[in-house]
Amino acid sequence: MNKEYNNKKLKTDIRNGLINHCEFFDLLNILKGYKDAGGKQNDAYAVLESLRGDIKDDSCKDIILELLDVITGFCSLYIRIWDNN
């Protein structure tokens, strides 16, 4: 994985995006950047799952759940990031 983008940076970027009320598609682009840097699907899932436990705001938790759906491929094809063959 690109040292510029690791699991810790993913967690920080998503957390900051949630705090700053970023749009869903902005957060989705963070996930895409993570994947493009060599990030793995299972690692992204684990990072967001741990972040979900840290976040207290229900609307932020809802967004994290939507992002988890994208990570697992339980989403529309046009926003899917990882192929689930």
Rank of each mutant, 00 (worst) to 15 (best):
M1T: 09
M1C: 08
N2R: 14
K3I: 10
E4C: 10
Y5I: 14
Y5M: 15
N6A: 05
N6W: 04
N6S: 07
N6G: 06
N7G: 07
K8W: 11
K8D: 14
K8N: 14
K9E: 13
K9D: 08
K9S: 07
L10K: 01
L10R: 02
L10T: 01
K11L: 07
T12M: 13
T12V: 11
I14Y: 01
I14F: 02
R15K: 15
N16K: 12
N16F: 10
G17Y: 01
L18P: 01
I19C: 04
I19T: 11
N20G: 07
H21C: 08
H21M: 10
H21V: 09
H21W: 12
C22L: 15
C22R: 10
E23Q: 13
E23H: 13
F24L: 07
F25V: 14
F25D: 15
F25G: 09
F25N: 15
D26A: 12
D26W: 09
L28H: 07
L28E: 02
N29H: 14
I30F: 06
L31H: 03
L31G: 01
K32Y: 10
K32Q: 15
Y34M: 04
K35D: 06
K35E: 12
K35A: 08
D36F: 11
D36C: 06
D36R: 10
A37L: 07
G38E: 03
G38K: 06
K40E: 11
Q41D: 06
Q41W: 05
Q41P: 02
N42R: 10
N42Y: 10
N42H: 10
N42A: 13
Y45C: 03
A46V: 05
A46D: 07
V47K: 00
V47M: 00
V47T: 03
L48T: 03
L48D: 01
L48G: 00
E49W: 09
E49N: 13
E49G: 05
S50E: 11
S50Q: 07
S50R: 08
L51V: 04
G53S: 05
G53D: 08
G53R: 07
D54Q: 11
I55G: 00
K56E: 15
K56M: 14
D57F: 09
D57N: 15
D57L: 14
D58H: 14
S59R: 11
S59C: 09
K61T: 06
K61G: 05
D62T: 12
D62M: 12
D62G: 11
I63T: 05
I63F: 02
I63H: 00
I64Y: 01
I64T: 02
I64A: 01
L65C: 10
L65S: 13
L65R: 12
L67W: 00
L67G: 00
L68K: 04
L68C: 03
L68D: 02
D69I: 05
D69K: 09
V70S: 00
V70T: 02
V70E: 00
I71P: 00
T72F: 03
T72A: 06
T72R: 04
T72W: 04
T72S: 09
F74L: 11
F74K: 12
S76W: 14
S76N: 13
L77G: 09
Y78F: 11
Y78C: 08
Y78E: 14
Y78G: 04
I79C: 03
R80T: 06
I81P: 00
I81T: 03
I81H: 01
W82G: 01
W82S: 02
W82F: 06
D83K: 15
N84Y: 14
N84E: 12
N85I: 10
